[in-house]
């Protein structure tokens, strides 16, 4: 070790700086690359396999649209909505990415470095929120485009109507991105509140997979449960992206309000806790 140090320029902390800092660390981690790759591959594969499966079923049975109960297969946007079949998995995987972005700070002790470099804690939260929103929405758009690119030749082969410009595919593309970003922000809030990766991921999985099961059981007993079931994050996402497959009686504004609630409320609660609690 030598002893002489030059004088460093005076460094002013800014939201842009913290955002750059978060990006450098986020993309340096293997977990980030693995989860993003997994989300894209799984989503595109589910779409392609779904298209192939339905296509070959149609080909082998012939004219099954006329059969009672199978009319949906002939609906104009059906092939497009197949593209969104893996949406809930994307929500979960990229939601985990959101959990890790915050819980990792506390499980590894790097929170100390982070909050020494930006003592204003809410600025760190703002940077993480922007980063995870842009990344997960972006990844979901890439996933949808890849799903389309792979499935298009398959759909053409079976004379299925898969059209990029169609209203149905555009819904899958954009509302899918919204649904995934919502899940990632819920994950971010869980990671921030629980400060623990395993706990955050388990809670997220419970929200997406266990809560719907519990609500569906309750629905058979009581009426009010079905009103709540419409507002779970997986139902909201699927009903927005694939409205013919997952039918809801909610108005668009009600759906969007539900999404906004799932984004704002956990983050706001987490922000209050983040500002108050000590950093360990």
């Amino acid at each position: 070790m030598s002893e002489k140090l030059a004088t460093a320029p005076r460094g002013k902390v800014s939201l842009f700086g913290v955002l750059r800092s978060e990006s450098i660390r986020f993309f340096s981690l293997n977990s980030t690359r693995i989860l993003i790759l997994l989300a894209i591959v799984l989503y595109a594969a589910i779409a392609a396999i779904g298209t192939w499966g339905i296509g070959s079923l149609r080909a082998s049975m012939g004219g099954m649209e006329q059969m009672p109960g199978m009319e949906d297969l002939a609906a104009p946007g059906f092939a497009s909505e197949l593209m969104g079949s893996g949406l809930v998995f994307s929500q979960l995987i990229l939601g985990v990415l959101g959990v890790l972005l915050f819980s990792g700070e506390f499980t590894t002790g790097s929170a100390v470095s982070t909050f020494l470099a930006s003592p204003q804690r809410l600025r760190v939260l703002a940077a993480k929120t922007i980063l995870i929103t842009v990344v997960t929405a972006g990844v979901q758009i890439v996933s949808s485009l890849l799903a389309f690119a792979i499935s298009k030749p398959i759909a053409d082969n079976y004379q299925m109507d898969l059209d990029f410009g169609s209203d149905a595919f555009q819904r899958v593309l954009w509302y899918g991105a919204l649904a995934v970003a919502m899940a990632a922000l819920i994950g971010l809030a869980l990671g921030m509140m629980l400060r623990n990766s395993a706990g955050g991921i388990t809670s997220l999985a419970a929200l997406f997979f266990v809560l719907p099961i519990i609500l569906s059981i309750l629905t058979s007993i009581t009426d009010w449960a079905q009103h709540i079931a419409k507002f779970t994050p997986d139902q909201l996402g699927m009903a927005l992206a694939t409205p013919s497959s997952v039918v809801t009686d909610l108005e668009s504004w009600q759906q969007l309000l539900g999404v906004a609630g799932w984004i704002v409320l956990p983050l706001a609660l987490g922000a209050v806790l983040l500002a108050k609690r000590d950093i360990k």
């Binding site: 800014s14 700086g17 800092s21 450098i24 990792g104 790097s110 929170a111 470099a117």
Partner: peptide, 21 residues
Amino acid sequence: SVHKSLTPLAHLRAMAATAGL
């Protein structure tokens, strides 16, 4: 106080970035 999966270079670059160093 550093993420275990980071390298010293990535950690310090990230720290420097917050303040535009």
